[in-house]
Each structure stands twice: as C-alpha cells, then as structure tokens.
Design a protein around this nucleic acid. Structure first.
Lengths: 109, 109
DNA sequence: CCGTATCATCGTTTATCGGCGATAAACGAT
DNA sequence: ATCGTTTATCGCCGATAAACGATGATACGG
C-alpha cells in the first residue's frame, strides 16, 4: 500500500517527456531555444536535413505540449520556443527525480 | 545552415526522456525518489498494481539509463533511485530548453 | 534434497512511433 | 483567376513499445 504520484499528473509529465523522447525533436527544441527568435518551417527543415513532412510532424508534437508556439506570419508559419516551459519542464524533471519544490503538491506550471 | 545540437548528445538525452515517457515509469521513479530507501520488486509491484513481469520490464528500462540502481539482497532485488541522476537529468532538461549551464559544451554528467 | 519465494526473460498480441512520398490547403504575387 | 511557395495532412511501412501469461533461473528454509 504505497502512495503513488497521481496518475493524471504522471500522464501529463509522461506526455512532456515523450515529446522530447526523439533525437530530432531534441535538436529542434534546442535550436529554437538557442536562437530565441522564431523560425519558419523551411528554415528548420533545412537545418534538420529531413523531409519537410517529417519536420512538420515533429513540430506538431512539440506544439501539442506547448513546448513551442506557432505564429502565422503571412504565408509562413513561425515557430518559437515557449519561454514558460523553460521553467516548468525542468521543474517537472525535478519533481519526478524527487527534488523538493517550492510549492509542494502543486504542478509546476 | 543552422548549427544543431550534436546528434549523439541528442540521442542520449532522448533516451533519458524516453525512459520517463510512460506514466507508470514516472510513478515508479517518483516513488523511489520520495522514499529514498531501496524497494523490492514485489513492493513496487504491489504499489503499481500491474503484473509483476510488466513492472520488472519497466524497472529494466529505468535501470538501463541508470535512473535507478539494482542491488541484489539475498533473494530479492532491491531498486533505489540514483542520486547522481537527481542532478544530471534536470540539468539535461535545462540544456534542451535553452537554459545556460555552468560548463557550456559539456554534458551534465 | 525439495518446496517456496522472488525475480527475470520469452513469446504473443495490440497499439503507437518515425520516416517518407504524395496530396491538399492557405496565401501572396502576377 | 492562376501560378508558385509554404505548410499541413494522409496513407503506408517497418520498427518499437506496453501489457500479459507462462516459463526459467536463483536463493532461502525446512
């Protein structure tokens, strides 16, 4: 009879980790995080060196968990890192790995 | 021609995130992190409420990335959280999300 | 030595993922 | 209105993952 982390919270965290459970998405997220400015899908595709449809799919997955944000600009779609996740995601990693957090029992974002 | 995070580093980070890309493994890791003491597979199985073989498989995945450590004790196998990953994993999350890190260009562990 | 307890591994089934090419949809410009 | 550009979506495939039951290995207690 051990207490477990609430299943729904675990589900949410798992979805965040799953979004980064692919090396290409890691590279895309890190790229967008380093250049703080938005990038078009074409630029990202050129950088990654994979098919455009593949990159678009990865961006969709990253956007679903709101690690990246979309902003249509004229014809192109611009993606940028979500500054809020720059905080809440590493904090979630702390929680899972057992590091105490400022407001206990609260989800980090 | 954009610079990307090195593919091998991205692969390693992705393998870490993938290990936590499942709610059951999140719960197991958080449980082991909260109780800092080792637990047997039987105890963990009872806590999780899934088949023993399933829990064993999850523990194997967590152990492969060394988030948890195994220590055979008599008959039972005791699993505990790896204190070193309590540091390096959230740091990896920082790197991916673009937060500057103490020694740049170095992997966190 | 035998039985029990504990855990890992194997084989199976079902579902999801990651990649691609092809196609559709939205838009600006001509 | 049509064309070219840009992005998203669809269909497909091989590979991987998650769950289970059954079987196998290893240690302990009679």
């Amino acid at each position: 009879m051990e207490e477990l982390l609430d299943r729904e919270v675990a589900q949410r965290y798992a979805s965040w980790f799953r979004a980064l459970a692919d090396p290409t998405r890691i590279q895309i997220a890190e790229l967008l995080a380093r250049r703080r400015e938005p990038m078009s899908v074409g630029q990202i595709t050129a950088a990654v060196g994979m098919a455009q449809s593949t990159v678009s799919q990865h961006l969709k997955i990253l956007a679903e968990v709101r690690f990246v944000l979309v902003e249509p600009s004229g014809n192109a779609n611009l993606y940028r890192i979500n500054d809020k996740c720059l905080e809440c995601f590493p904090t979630a990693a702390d929680v899972v790995m057992g590091r105490p957090v400022a407001s206990p029992g609260q989800t980090p974002c």
